[in-house]
Design a binder for these strands. Structure first.
Lengths: 334, 334
DNA sequence: ACACTTTTCTGCAACGATGTATCCAGATGC
DNA sequence: GCATCTGGATACATCGTTGCAGAAAAGTGT
């Protein structure tokens, strides 16, 4: 059916292996021979069989991306960029959605997904460092976005603490004193929510503003979670003059609920988010948020992973990359 | 390194082929033998090598999804659902972004991407039917979302015309008479923009409202395009009392621009969109839009493609599925 | 002309699974 | 008692590549 290397070899009057050598840029081939082979390839329309190549070589030129939910705007934008960067280096990205469930994250690390890829970009939400470290096999793994402080892993992340602190400081500078935080559990110390909450507390401390646990509302990270979290807060009668959503979707959901209930943004309550998804710019009012250097994260994480896969990067300790951030001050919290 | 079938065979004291037979549910195996094999598999932690299986069987259990840009919210939500549906049937989805460029769409149809997958879900934006029909190989292809009227292809789409007509009728019923349309070129007849524009014109005709070409603004389909399109319209001095964005991102960008410029939504100008992405519900004001049956589209397109791949669906003519739609009337155009 | 490198090309085995053909043992039929 | 059948297992070839080792050809030095 399909044209194989054998057909090309026959057409070019050389051995099968010579065709392989041409395709793999083997050094010692006479230009004339090479040309014969290339001509035969062009004439027959030969395409290398990637599956066979992959079986033989053990490489698939695919990178795995494990995240909770591709429909979340931050992940969608990140995935899109990661694919573009990977593509430029000749790799494809295979996405696996974990729904932030431990079982799914485990199966992504251990199951067939791992086999199909040369390395993994992993956003752990349910698993802890030790569990991840126990994974079978030894394919490269780059942690993404989450801050699992562990020298065993490569990590590309953002300045969660610093950025949250800067944003909180901005809200404080705007005269806000009762800043509600949506999306973090109090006790939660690892992962983005905990880190961002830490940044928030540091900013409060620096400004000598009291920390009030009543302002901390645990919730999911989607729009509907933000809406119901802020709704519950309003219902509870807790007074607040700003809302810091630990991601943009959350913040936008919260802003929607505030406006629905007649709370003016930013006059009554300022709203800030985190991620700077495209949607934030076009919200009404436009959402003040943290741009966490997604471009940089995409480029460096894919770059690092491919370097690991190809053996270019060899350091024993995990490489640790932290992208810079930028505050985007917009109408929702000027 | 990895455990192979051979190791299992040795451990179980049977032949390699018997292990294969157990894994492939071959009928005639003594329960005792089967158990021995299963025990050995469990003990050694054997996992079938998907690449080898794929080389031998010619199937990869991967479906390709070609779309313009995964970061566009509609596509992100669709891709997420498609993956979930495919996963339930034991397939993975490999995404390829075309950026709506002809070259990329062609390479998705002809290049290595085709090889890696058992079938394609294809959203053609640049290619026409004949070009697609010319593709090499004969792997199943299901057209997605776009309405390429052609019996050669399977197609899962939405009621573009009917839905646009219903939405326009709704705006007319609300007393709007100067409804601007963003995202369509006048002459464009194929594809979603053209079809939705047709629905718009039909609704105008049914209500005996004159069609004014000045109200039709061609533009891209992203938020920034919507913002600049409506900005240009305002600047041009054309009078309008409603905006129909041919997708939600566009409509939301437009709404943002209107509000920025002090135009009241919906009092001065009503805004409607198309797609019902999650963001629409939480916009301020919430966006009136068309829910195009994405759930149904995801389920039926993946179902159809897998049926083709597995040979369950065998009709010679392209199967044609049209999902139902629903108007979501919200505050932006009550 | 001979030994010795270096360049150029080739054959064979292997990657890890599955399809086809076959073989063996026991049951069945007459 | 011998041919026939069927359930249960196996051997071998095969999918389309690449790694390894080595052969053939070409160049080098004396």
């Amino acid at each position: 059916m399909a044209v194989t290397m054998n057909d090309v070899a026959r057409a070019a009057g050389v051995s099968l292996k010579t065709v392989s050598n041409v395709l793999n840029d083997y050094e010692f081939i006479r230009p004339a021979t090479k040309q014969k082979v290339l001509d035969a390839i062009a004439e027959l329309g030969y395409e290398a069989n990637l599956t066979a190549r992959s079986l033989r070589s053990g490489k698939s030129r695919m990178l795995g991306l494990v995240l909770s939910d591709l429909s979340a705007p931050y992940y969608a934008e990140l995935a899109s960029r990661l694919m573009t960067v990977a593509s430029a280096r000749g790799y494809r990205v295979l996405v696996e959605q974990s729904a932030a469930l431990e079982a799914n994250e485990l199966s992504a690390l251990h199951g067939p997904f791992r086999q199909l890829t040369d390395g993994l970009l992993f956003t752990p939400l349910a698993l802890d460092a030790d569990t991840v470290a126990d994974r079978r096999g030894s394919k490269p793994l780059v942690m993404l976005g989450e801050h699992i402080e562990d020298p065993r892993f490569d990590l590309v992340t953002m300045k969660n603490i610093g950025a949250a602190q800067a944003m909180t400081a901005h809200l404080l500078a705007g005269g806000r004193r009762r800043i509600a935080v949506l999306g973090a559990a109090m006790e939660d110390d690892a992962g983005s929510p905990g880190l961002r909450l830490t940044g928030y507390r540091e900013a409060l401390a620096a400004a000598a503003v009291d920390f009030d646990p009543a302002l901390i509302v645990p919730s999911g990270w989607r729009r509907d979670a933000g809406a119901s979290a802020v709704g519950a807060l309003l219902d509870s009668g807790v007074v607040f003059d700003a809302v810091f959503g630990l991601n943009d979707a959350l913040a936008l959901g919260a802003m929607h609920e505030l406006l629905i209930r007649g709370v003016k943004v930013p006059q009554d309550v300022a709203v800030a988010g985190f991620d700077d998804i495209d949607e934030a710019r076009f919200a009404s009012p436009a959402l003040t948020t943290v741009a966490p250097g997604m471009e940089e994260i995409a480029e460096r994480s894919v770059g690092l992973l491919i370097d690991r896969v190809e053996g270019t990067e060899t350091s024993d300790e995990g490489v640790h990359i932290e992208a810079g951030f930028e505050l985007k001050i917009r109408a929702s919290a000027p």
